[in-house]
Each structure stands twice: as structure tokens, then as C-alpha cells.
Amino acid sequence: MRAAIPELPQARLRELTDHYASAVAEKRRQLWLGSALLVGAVLAAGWMGDVDPWKFSENFWRFPAYFANMVPKFSFTSAWADLSEWFWGLPRWTRLLGDTLLIAYVGTLSGAIGGFVLCFLASANLVRSRTIVFLTRRALEFCRTVPEIVFALIFVLAFGLGPLPGVLALAIHTMGALGKQFAEVVENIDSKPIEGVAASGGSWLQIVRFGAVPQVLSNFASYALLRFEYNVRGAAVMGFVGAGGIGQDLIEAVRKFYFTDVSAILLLIVATIMIIDFITERVRHHLIGLQGAGT
């Protein structure tokens, strides 16, 4: 073997390695400090959150047992009968799933319309009044930060049991979340068209309609679809607090230990969500490909 790299004298070698070590020492120290902080935080959080490894390991067998209970009896000889027994409530569950989708749709659409209206008021490049921008932003943030199920809990008391509080809760949360995302999009648009429309004598509404909306529409639609996907998941649990949809039957089945019902309903929910995800993803790719053809 030919030595292309000459062997270094010991002193020189030591000097170079020391140099390298001191160069990475700072980085290493930071890593150690970070790890120590992380371990400390984990211990503190574990203490705070009542984490009990003993209890966990003692009870862990219950987890597979729980799932084993959920598996229905099934044999290939009587496949059809077993299946129909497992999914005995299919007509009712399908209707409830449909309700869930409608709650998500109505909530998303109303929330998106609200967010659409408010996002322009929350954009500093369209509204001169700092006060309006500030107030709209805080209102949107409030709607976004309070979880939808908390709104649902309160709305159930005001509007009574049923889908109405669920729809309203989703709508308000969606308005906050989309309004904030929309406003970020609007603040990043090209300002030249806006100036052009303003210089031709357009009113504020016309500036928004012709200067801003054409630039943001495809992005808005994509965000709204993503939010619909998220809201389908949200609507599925609205029933936990009595706000309509499939959640009602699910929580009842869990509470009453109807294990096979739980698994059947869970499967239906997961399948529905997968289908919705698949469709919205296709549509969003299409939208991004279009990038706003006109209007």
C-alpha cells in the first residue's frame, strides 16, 4: 500500500487534536447542558404528572387485554353473520357519521367565511388603524387558543344538547385559526397591485377585492380544506360533551364496556377520516398546481 498521507510527528498530532477538541468543546458543553435540562424537565414533569412506572408495568397487561376484548369473534365459516353481528348498528352509525361530516362542513364553512372577513381587518398592510388590527388579532387569537371542546361545553348549556353547539364551537375555533393563517397570507402578498388599484381610485372594498383577493384565493382554499380535515376529527368527539355526531355513541359504548361496539365505531371513524384526508389532499395538490387561475 502506498502511503499518500504522511504520518504526523507526535507533537504536531497532539497540537492538532487539542485544537479540534477545544473547537468542539463549546458545542459539546451546550449539548450536555441541554441534555441535563431535558432530564431535569422530564423528572419534574414526571413527578407533576403522577407518572408511576410501577403502576404502569403492573397494569400494562390490561392494554393488550383491552384490545383483545375489542376483537369480535370471527370465523371464516360464518364470516357474514359475524360481520353483521359486529356491525349491528351500521345504519345508525352511518347516519351519525354523516351527521359528523355535516357538523364539520357547516362549522368549517361558517368559520371560514368569518375568518375571510376578519383576516383583512387583521392585516397591517391593508388597514391603517393600528387599533383595528390589534383588536381583530387579539379576538382571532382568543377564538383560536380556547379549544373547541371548551366552547362546546359552554354552548351546550346555552343552546341545549344537539349538533348546534358543536357546529358553533367548530365555527368559532375555525374562524380564529383560519383568520390568523389567512391574515399571515395577506400580509405577505405583493403590495404593487394594491397600490395600482388604490391609485386608480378604488375604495377599500375594491382594493381588497381586486388587489388582494386574486393573490390569496388559492392559498385560502387550501388552508380551509386542511382545516376541514382537522374539523372532521374534532366533530367526531363533539358527542363526548353532548354536541352531536358519532362521539355520543362512542363514549356510551366505552362507558358501558361494549367492547366490540367500540372497535366497530373506531374503525368506521378511522376509515372515514382516511377517505376525507385522501380526497382533500388530492384537491389541495390540484389547487397548488393551479395557483389561482383568475378571479
Partner: peptide, 18 residues
């Protein structure tokens, strides 16, 4: 007044998507 004093810009300031 803005309509009466038409402005023409260096970067044209058209709405590209329209």
C-alpha cells in the same frame, strides 16, 4: 381625485392574477 390623476408605475402595478 385619484381617478382624475392617473398614476403609471415603474413596476406597472397590475394585478397579475387577473
Amino acid at each position: 381625485w385619484r381617478a382624475r390623476s392617473a398614476m403609471i408605475f415603474q413596476q406597472f402595478n397590475l394585478v397579475g392574477r387577473l
